[in-house]
């Protein structure tokens, strides 16, 4: 479990909450932003985190387990599952080449009545209009984006290529990364594209840490975070 108080942990919790039917920042029928931190889905996601730790299916030290630590745990066989993207296969295999063929991706299960969803992280490039080395930059991007090189990158990092013809290659659809490809073909969400969304996103990590610690009830935590979210919405929305 990536339980650190940072963007890495927040992003993973967000996917879980979405698959529980919660949206941290949604819109109502009138098109106004609404907070989802005290929704049943958000509370269910918090409870899932707490239960996972309480029943002992999370390696110890979840609050210090960030992405690098969790990837190593997967590679070393100290953890069996992790909410992540295909690139973690590359990281895990670097930590432990013997794990090749033993790792696989699968879509995150969704709560009853909720359509499974995931997020896509795209790495984009841009060339500035006034770039003095525009031709070289274009040549470099073409080099990165040709099918052969996309497959080479995929072979080492397991990142899914951006070219559709490379995505269709059997190498990309290997048993190890097929689950990720399938998840990406399903319902995909993107977070609201507003400058203040991060103020909402960062509310989740203190919440799941508090839920795991158990000093407050999940209802209390959800209420507190929802109040903060509503204040942020009122200030910005």
């Amino acid at each position: 479990m990536v339980g650190t108080d940072n963007g890495s942990g927040q992003g993973r919790f967000n996917v879980i909450a979405r698959n529980m039917g919660a949206t941290d920042l949604g819109k109502n029928a009138a098109g106004k932003y609404v907070a989802g931190q005290d929704s049943d889905g958000w509370k269910a996601a918090l409870k899932l985190y707490k239960d996972a730790v309480d029943v002992g299916c999370v390696p110890p030290g979840q609050f210090q387990t960030g992405y690098p630590e969790a990837s190593v745990q997967i590679g070393k066989g100290q953890a069996a599952m992790m909410i992540t993207g295909p690139h973690t296969i590359g990281v895990a295999l670097t930590a432990n080449p013997a794990a090749k063929g033993k790792l696989a991706g699968a879509p995150i299960p969704a709560a009853a009545g909720v359509s499974a969803t995931t997020s896509l992280n795209q790495s984009g490039y841009a060339i500035a209009r006034r770039s003095t080395h525009r031709a070289a930059a274009i040549a470099y991007l073409k080099f990165l984006l040709n099918k052969e090189n996309q497959l080479r990158i995929n072979d080492v990092t397991y990142r899914i290529p951006s070219r559709l013809d490379a995505q269709a290659d059997p190498q990309v659809n290997s048993e190890m990364s097929l689950g990720f490809v399938k998840a990406g073909e399903g319902k995909v969400f993107s977070n609201p594209q507003i400058p203040w969304y991060n103020s909402i996103a960062i509310l989740s990590s203190p919440a799941y840490q508090a839920a795991i610690k158990g000093d407050k009830t999940i209802d209390q935590i959800a209420k507190e975070q929802a109040e903060k979210a509503r204040k942020i919405i009122a200030d910005n929305g």
Binding site: F63, N198, S199, P206, Q209
Partner: peptide, 22 residues
């Protein structure tokens, strides 16, 4: 600053206000 804010000193609060919350 975790767990759940237990080590969140003011400098972390300032950093998060500025570069988390903008």
């Amino acid at each position: 600053g975790g767990p759940a804010g237990a080590t969140k000193v003011v400098s972390i609060s300032i950093y998060q206000q500025a570069f988390g919350d903008f």
